[in-house]
């Protein structure tokens, strides 16, 4: 990897200042994605600001029954937190479906939000990639697209967002707290990740100096009955082809509350609002689930290599909702 200066920040303000004053500087958390990308020459920061010593590793109760999760909470620790288990099983399940136990012990919640795509053309410096090099073109178009997105894509980029956790966070309307030199702000999950459009290299709403400090989960009563279902090419330790984060409450055969988000199919963690709207107040049966799935997937842009994802996503949505309604 390209040589870099290493700074270990002692507090949040120091970390933010260190990055703000240094073009090309990057925050380093657990390293599971950034170190890999640096070794591949995809990320080439001149300065790396290690934030792992910052006091951001606590999970605290919020007055409304939600949780405030420090950005440096490790994925494994969050998955094991009994409050997460009880209030947001989909979060725990999403984390446990991701990567491997070793990686979950290293990876942080903040880093998970900033995970970069697994598009193989993004990873191969010899391939054209608009995300890596704006204006270079996209070799994924016309290439192997099994892992690529079908929702929210553009002619510039069809890369899928790889995170499992973010799918659950999207379903739960999480809020991301960030700190920059200008202070603290709160970004709703729906606005945190950007669709590629014609600027696929801009992936989040973060300014270059902004550090994710926490993720807040509001109280979402329906999430107590939730599920994260991940479908992939082997039984474990693989990225999602399709994943579904769903929460469902049925009263007297009618959908009283529902949350639905998709992974593996979206250019960003995909909140399925069209499906939710169709489901809310309607019957909780197989037909309704299928209609909702189809409505969500209707705008899908598919290619020969990922056309199956509409069928797979539909099947997985229906199966997950069926399971929750049963």
């Amino acid at each position: 990897m390209r040589p870099f200066a290493y700074v270990r920040a002692a507090d949040v303000d120091e970390a933010v200042r260190a990055v703000a004053g240094e073009p090309g500087a990057k925050f380093l958390g657990g390293g599971t994605n950034l170190v890999d990308l640096m070794r591949e020459g995809i990320e080439r920061p001149a300065t790396v600001v290690d934030v792992t010593a910052l006091p951001l590793a606590a999970v605290d109760d919020l007055p409304d029954g939600g949780l405030r999760i420090g950005a440096l909470v490790r994925n494994s620790a969050l998955a094991a937190d009994p409050r997460v288990h009880a209030r947001y099983p989909m979060v725990s399940q999403a984390l446990l479906a991701g990567a491997s136990p070793q990686l979950r012990n290293m990876a942080t919640v903040g880093g998970n939000l900033l995970q970069r795509t697994r598009c193989p053309y993004f990873y191969d410096a010899a391939a054209a990639c608009n995300k890596r090099e704006p204006g270079a073109g996209c070799d994924a178009l016309g290439g192997f697209t099994r892992g690529h997105a079908i929702l929210g894509v553009s002619e510039s980029c069809i890369a899928a967002h790889p995170s499992d956790l973010c799918v659950a966070l999207a379903a739960l309307d999480a809020v991301v707290e960030v700190r920059g030199v200008g202070g603290t702000r709160r970004i709703p999950m729906a606005e945190f990740h950007r669709l590629p459009g014609d600027t696929p290299h801009v992936e989040t709403a973060l300014a270059p100096d902004e550090l994710v400090t926490a993720v807040e989960l509001p109280a979402v009563p329906v999430a107590a009955r939730s599920r994260y279902r991940k479908v992939r090419d082997r039984a474990s330790y693989a990225f999602a082809l399709v994943s579904v984060a769903a929460a469902l409450e049925v009263r007297d055969g009618v959908v009283a509350d529902v949350r639905l988000a998709l992974g593996g199919v979206g250019a960003k963690p995909w909140r399925a609002r069209a499906a939710e709207e169709l489901l809310a107040g309607g019957p909780a049966d197989e037909d309704a689930f299928a209609r909702a799935a189809e409505a969500e997937l209707e705008p899908a842009t598919v290619r020969p290599g990922n056309a199956f994802k509409t069928r797979l996503a539909r099947a997985t949505i229906v199966a997950t909702l069926r399971e929750l309604s049963g």
Binding site: Y6, L28, D36, D50, S100, Q102, L103
Partner: peptide, 13 residues
Amino acid sequence: GVRINACLALAVQ
């Protein structure tokens, strides 16, 4: 005491 992948760990960390 925690298992990690040493390849993605920078020694300085």
